[in-house]
């Protein structure tokens, strides 16, 4: 058959399309020349100058703080929302709650950004909080738009979780809150963790919403990068990009290895279970007591 070959050619082309730009970015971060497009020999000078760029570094630190805070908030709220959607069955207004939870997922960021800014301004007008725009407003905005992602991840994990496991815990005497913390949460922990990581990444990467709700005092990293790109391409950004790509790849690779190990462990366990079936002792029923056939 010829079709598979054609398919794999497109697949290879698609991956090339996805990865060549990133690869070039990494290569040119080691370029000695200031001109990004001309190879002037190998150098690590842009990494050194990046480390000296106080403005970028403080923006990065601010972004990391915001990302950690907002991801944590979004994980708590998103997990709650995911549970409501997956477990609380049909209650009045469920459809509305579902729509409300997933709407931020598809809302264009310019709209979310503008509407949040106008909310913050109105709130400040009304109750004097939040004062000005900065870390607080960015964090609140990020919690709002990332919690939908966490909710969707948690919901789909919960949907595939056998509900009778939670019922069993309740049947054995655990109150609902205890059931959640002792049974449900440990089981869905991987989904919650990946929800947190996704929220963290989205927050760290957000340009548009931050653009609206950040203030003059607090410029997060993406805004800093965005404005310096608009002024022109600088090799420092290449170096920064390389560091980010490196960190993410290392993280993903570690996660991949971990899940591969889990998979191997699971296979071993399955084998153990099959052998276990053979070890089963004969049951205790003495045949002489059985009724005559």
């Amino acid at each position: 058959m010829r079709r598979p070959n054609f398919l794999y050619m497109i697949l290879a082309l698609g991956f090339a399309f996805l990865y060549v730009p990133i690869l070039l970015l990494v290569i040119y971060s080691f370029n000695a020349s200031r001109l990004v497009t001309l190879w002037g020999g190998f150098s690590t000078q842009w990494y050194a100058s990046l480390l000296g760029n106080q403005q970028l570094l403080s923006a990065a630190w601010l972004s990391l703080q915001i990302a950690a805070l907002s991801a944590t908030g979004a994980t708590v709220l998103g997990t709650m929302a995911g549970m409501v959607m997956a477990r609380f069955g049909r209650f009045r207004g469920r459809a509305i709650v579902g729509a409300l939870v997933t709407a931020p997922l598809v809302m264009p960021e310019v709209i979310t950004g503008l509407s949040l800014l106008l909310l913050f301004v109105s709130l400040e007008d009304l109750i004097g909080w939040p004062e000005g725009r900065g870390m607080t407003t960015i964090t609140l905005a990020h919690v709002t738009f990332t919690m939908a992602f966490v909710a969707v991840i948690v919901q789909s994990r919960m949907a595939s979780l056998d509900e009778s496991i939670e019922e069993a815990a309740m049947d054995l005497g655990a109150r609902p809150a205890k059931v959640f913390f002792v049974i449900t949460l440990p089981i869905i922990a991987p989904a919650v963790v990946s929800g947190w990581l996704l929220a963290f990444t989205l927050s760290l990467d957000d340009v548009v919403i931050s653009n609206f709700v950040s203030g003059p005092g607090a410029t997060p990293l993406p805004i800093e990068i965005f404005s310096s790109i608009r002024l022109g391409v600088t090799p420092e950004i290449n170096a920064l990009a390389t560091i980010i790509v490196g960190l993410v790849s290392a993280g993903i690779l570690a996660a991949g290895l971990w899940s591969a190990r889990q998979e191997r462990q699971r296979r071993r366990d399955e084998q153990l279970a099959r052998q276990g079936a053979g070890e089963l002792m004969p049951i205790s029923s003495p045949p002489q007591d059985a009724p005559p056939h």
Partner: peptide, 19 residues
Amino acid sequence: PPYARPVNMMFQSYALFPH
């Protein structure tokens, strides 16, 4: 509520706590 009843149940799926 179920957690206060002197009743226990064996579930069809067994519902063992995997962790």
